[in-house]
Structure formats: C-alpha cells, structure tokens
Design a protein around this nucleic acid. Structure first.
Length: 575
RNA sequence: UGGGGUGUCGUCAAGUGGUAAGACACGGGCUUUUGGAGCCCGCAUUCGGAGGUUCGAAUCCUCCCACCCCAGCCA
C-alpha cells in the first residue's frame, strides 16, 4: 500500500511503545520483564515471550528483567529456576543484575494488603472454597456478597495478622478485595488476595504461611520494578481491570499491561500440563527429549539459539489466536545450519560396495570441502579404498522413473571421489536379500570430475568400510500425526495422536573417521541426509550417538510420492 | 439470552479511506560434484457474511455469523 518500503512495519506492541516514546510517556523509558513461574521447563512458546521482551528492551534502548513469579510454593522448585536461567542465557539474552523474584516482595505485598484493609477495600472471609465459588455466581448470574464482607477494619486487621501468624488452618480464611460481586467480569467479584498455605517456599522457607495470589502480585511487582510495559498472553485480558484496580488503589506507579497471542505450533503440544503428562507417562524420555518443544529438548535436538530467535522474529506478534506451521521452524534451522554446519559423510543404512578394479590394499586420501557455502571452512581428507558402504536406498535393482542413483549397469558419482558403475549384485541364496554390490571405478574421474563430457546424474555419499566408524543415529520425526493434537473436540485424547514412529534408532550406521572426536552438541550436515548433532547426553568417544535435527529438503521423496506405484512389492519408504 | 477478545492466501502476517507487503508452504524454470543450497517466475480482482456511507472501503456505520478466553484459596 502506501507504506514506504524503507520503514518496516512494527507489530502492534512496538507501535504502542513507539507512540509512548513520542509522547514522552515514562520519561522516554522502556522497561520490560520476562516473568516465568518456576514450575516447569521453558518451551518455544516462552522463547517467543523472551525474544519479545528482551528484544523490545534492546530495540528501544531499555531494559528487561528476569523475574520469577514464585507465589505458589507447592508447585515451584529451585531446579526449575536454574533450568530457566540456563535456557534464557542460552537463547542469548542477558538480564545483567536484574534477577528478581516475586517472593522478594512478600513483605511489601503484605503492607499493600494492610493498606487496602485500612482503606476498607479488603476483608477477611471465612467462607470455604466451595462457598466462595457458590457465592461468586456464574457467567450469566451475578454473585452474592459474603456475610463477612462488612467486617470492621479493626477486625480485618486483627484477623489478617493472625492469618500471617499461623493461627488458622489451610483454607480456613482468605483475604479478599472488596470490589463488586455483580461485576460482569468474574475477576472483579471480590478476588482472593491471600490464602493460608502452611508450605515451605523454595526461597523464603517457613517465613510465611500465607501467600499472595497472582493477581495481587503481578502488577505490584511490575510497579515496584518500574516496568513500563507488562507484556503477557491473551488469557490475562480479563485480568487487566483488576491489575489496574490494585495499582490505582495503592496509588503506585502504573505499568501498562498489553496482551498478545501465545504461540501454537503444529504437530506438537505446548501446554505445561500436556508436556508434563508426556514426560511423566514415559511417552518421551524426559523434559529434554529431542521431540519435545522445550528449549532443552530443542537444544539437544540440535536447534541453535539463533535459529529459534529468527523463528520468533518471523512469526510476528499479534492478538489473533493462531497455529504456526512447524515447517517454518524447520526452515529456520535449515537456513542457519546451511551456513554453519560442516558437511560430513555418514551412511545410515549401509550396503557393501566392492570396487572390483581397485587395488586390494590401497588407501588414498581425497580432498573434501567442508562447506560449499563457506570456503573459509576449508577442507579435509577422506580415505578411499576397495570396499565401501553406500546408502541402501541409493541402489534400486529395478529403478523407477526419474531415479538417477545406482542401478545395475548405471554409473554414478561418488562425492569427492570417482565415477563408479554397477556391474553385479550378490544376494543371499535363501532369502534373496541383497548382500553386496560389485562396481568398477574410472581412475580418470578422480575427485569426481570427468573431462570427456560424460554426464552423470547421481552423486552419492559413501564411506570407506575399513576406515569408517560405527555410530548410533536417532531419527526424530513429528511427535504427533495430527497438525493439532490438542483439538479434542472429537472426543479423542491428545495422546491418541502420538506418532508411533517419532523416534527410529539406527545402530549400525557408518560415519567418516573425522567424526571420531566430535564434540557433544556439535551440529553437522550428513551429506544428502539432513542436519544432525552429537547427542549431549549419550554420546561418547566409545559410542557415537547422533540426533537428527531436521532432514534436508527432499525433492526426490516428493517426486517419488507422486509417482504411481508401478510394481507391487516396491520397497516402502522407511518409517 | 454475562463480559472480554479475534476474524486478510494452505500457515503466519503487513495494511489505520485512495484502490491487497513480506515470509513459510506449494507449483514451474535456471543452475548445481548434496535430487541440498542459490537464482528467477507464478501463487488473495479480494479482506468472515449482508447491507449502508463515500468519487473511492480490508479500513467508517449497521446488523448478522464463526472461533477463542473467563465461574482456582493456579499462574
């Protein structure tokens, strides 16, 4: 439209902030925060929020805090705060000295509560949880006032002090705000501010036996820290009036809460409850299972922080509930790895190839570039000898149309090596199973070049049998078969849609010798196959284990899929 | 038949009265010692629907429809 292409459009949050800055709101300061509850591991949805909050701070010359929203001691653990800090740092963000905890504000929050009581805006309620629910009314009916709502300030002060002193049992009394029991917004029907909870907190220990609720904590914490823009997800839209009510009643600095849509990704689940169910039910191996959308799982899978940041930038920020295509995430990691990953030879499902006209005891070393996208990455030497392994899938006794890999009588190029021609097959007499191939090589094609104008369509990866190393390779695929497994409207459970083949483990793979000392976590491209990384948990020099991060784009697979199956008994694509 | 939100290409997403950006996906071509990468081209006469205002509407008005969130002493 009439947008000058020199000014990239801002998302709605950045637009608001931009306007605020122009109006000199908050004296031109921008201060955000990422406020996780330490009750689980971070996932890609959190990454969106992290990139948003830290990104905005950087772009507008502001600051971003890391704050743990730790007001519910029975769900929170130190283990989670450590993993969260690790993940945020790994993603490339720095909160410097601004690490805070909502529990740092417990004393202040308690004072705020007293202030509200003194102003007649809060009262101690003796109703049970069930009664409170009953009195709250429903979506279409107004609520009723609690009989304890009219207690005197003195009595409320006394009772609240005794709540804190530990005189009352869990659940026996709560402190409530006195707002409006007939409000159409349920959050305003005298919300609970404090509950009695005789539980040790991971940071404050046994100092408290009453704990503030989220609504009574979040806005005030933002206010205390001078947060100018408090970014949260859509489900808190209904809480905004309450958020504002507290800071207004307390007459403290008022941050602006802005809500955006949380991330949904196809073929996976994002809710903490579902993730927990998968981990605890043993459907995956742990929170860092490479199939999970957790930051730790993705890191182990081989995703780079940069690729995740790029992804978060690409998906944008808006208020529309959406489902982002997993293909975009995969694009982001391919794009990043294409630039940085060293290319290596790895044969996942090996078939022996004997080069009949190659000398028995000879080994020669061939030059192989490490990355065609980046000559600066140099080259390495690859051993070549009489007996090789190539990919089983790269040979077809009866090749379909457009298949230009190896077949009887056909010639292909071995990457960085020679042209070879298939002269014969050896099969198991009983089963008819292919055991090895016999080929001849053309010595004049060393390096993979021919000067006689001969055209070879296929180029295969390979390893020298005697020099290659055995490795285990884990092939990961989508965790779910359905794009939206969380859609349970048809009565199904999300676990019904788990992909039974989300992990295939190959144990007799052969990789080139340079991989002998590959460092844990290192990302590589297995030529023609995909991007892989050395598993950071199970791999060692004695037992190499690789995880497939993502496949390469596979045009041939697409062609083959659209071809009519011409023969029965055609080899099915491995699952 | 309460309140709060959202509806623009298969998926995200710009656009804020001047005549539908971009990305992924998809299709085609070129190129290529990865059927990778790269490059080029194509891909919404139309913006949930129906009316209306206007010279002109995805943008304004009216009505309707669909979907999401809220009845924790969770966050």
């Amino acid at each position: 439209m009439n947008t000058p292409d020199s000014t990239p459009s801002l998302d709605f949050i950045r637009s608001i902030i931009s306007e605020d800055l122009k109006a000199n709101k908050n004296k031109g300061q921008v201060h955000t925060r990422f406020p996780p509850e330490p009750n689980g591991y971070l996932h890609i949805g959190h990454a969106k929020s992290i990139c948003l909050n830290f990104g905005i701070a950087t772009e507008f010359g502001g600051l971003c805090n890391l704050r743990f929203d730790d007001t519910n001691p029975i769900k929170e653990e130190e283990e989670f705060v450590e993993s969260i800090k690790k993940d945020v740092r790994w993603l490339g963000f720095d909160w410097e000295d601004r690490l805070y905890y909502a529990s740092d504000y417990f004393d202040q929050l308690y004072e705020y509560a007293i202030q509200l009581i003194k102003n007649g805006k809060a009262y101690v309620d003796d109703l049970t949880a069930d009664e409170i629910r009953e009195y709250r009314g429903t979506l279409t009916e107004p609520g009723r006032e609690s009989p304890y709502r009219t207690r005197s300030v003195e009595e409320n002060l006394d009772l609240f002090a005794r709540m804190r002193a530990g005189e009352f049992k869990d659940g026996s009394r709560v402190l409530r705000a006195k707002i409006h029991m007939a409000s159409p917004n349920l959050n305003m029907r005298d919300p609970v501010l404090y509950r009695v909870l005789h539980a040790a907190h991971h940071r404050t220990g046994k100092k408290w036996c009453i704990y503030p609720m989220y609504d009574f904590t979040h806005g005030q914490s933002d206010s205390i820290e001078g947060i100018t823009h408090s970014l949260c997800t859509l489900e808190f839209e209904d809480h905004r009036p309450l958020y504002d009510w507290f800071v207004n009643e307390l007459k403290i600095f008022t941050p602006q809460q802005i809500e955006f849509a949380r991330l949904n990704l196809s073929y996976t689940v994002m809710s903490k409850r579902k993730l927990m169910e998968l981990v605890e039910g043993g459907y995956v191996t742990g929170w860092d299972d490479p199939r999970l959308p957790t930051i730790s799982g993705m890191r182990r899978r081989g995703y780079t922080a940069e690729s995740i940041r790029n992804f978060c930038e690409r998906i944008g920020v808006a208020k529309r509930g959406s489902m982002v295509d997993m293909a975009l995430l995969e694009y982001s990691i391919r794009e990043d790895m294409n630039k940085r990953a060293q290319r290596v030879m790895a044969v996942l499902r090996p078939i022996r190839v004997v080069i009949d006209n190659y000398p028995e005891d000879e080994t020669e070393y061939l030059d192989a570039e490490n990355n065609p996208e980046d000559p600066g990455m140099g080259s390495r030497k690859l051993p070549f000898s009489r007996v090789l392994f190539i990919e089983r899938d790269d040979f077809r006794e009866d090749p379909p149309k457009k298949f230009f890999r190896l077949a009887p009588g056909r010639e292909v190029r071995l990457k960085h090596a020679y042209y070879i021609k298939c002269k014969g097959m050896v099969k198991d007499e009983k089963t008819g199973e292919l055991i090895e191939l016999h080929c001849t090589y053309d010595p004049k094609t060393r390096g993979g070049w021919s000067d006689d104008g001969r055209k070879v369509r296929g180029t295969l990866h390979w390893v020298s049998a005697a020099h290659s190393i055995e490795a285990e390779v884990r092939l990961y695929d989508h965790l779910f078969l359905k794009p939206n497994p969380s859609d349970e409207k048809d009565g199904s459970d999300f676990k019904d849609h788990l992909n039974p083949n989300s992990l295939e483990t190959l144990t007799s793979c052969r990789v080139e010798p340079t991989l002998a000392d590959a460092a844990p976590g290192m990302g590589l491209q297995f030529l023609r196959l995909g991007y892989f990384c050395v598993d950071s948990v199970d791999s060692s020099t004695n037992r190499l284990v690789f995880n497939r991060t993502v496949t390469l784009r596979d045009t041939w697979a697409k062609i083959e899929k659209t071809q009519k199956p011409k023969m029965p008994g055609k080899r099915k694509k491995a699952v």
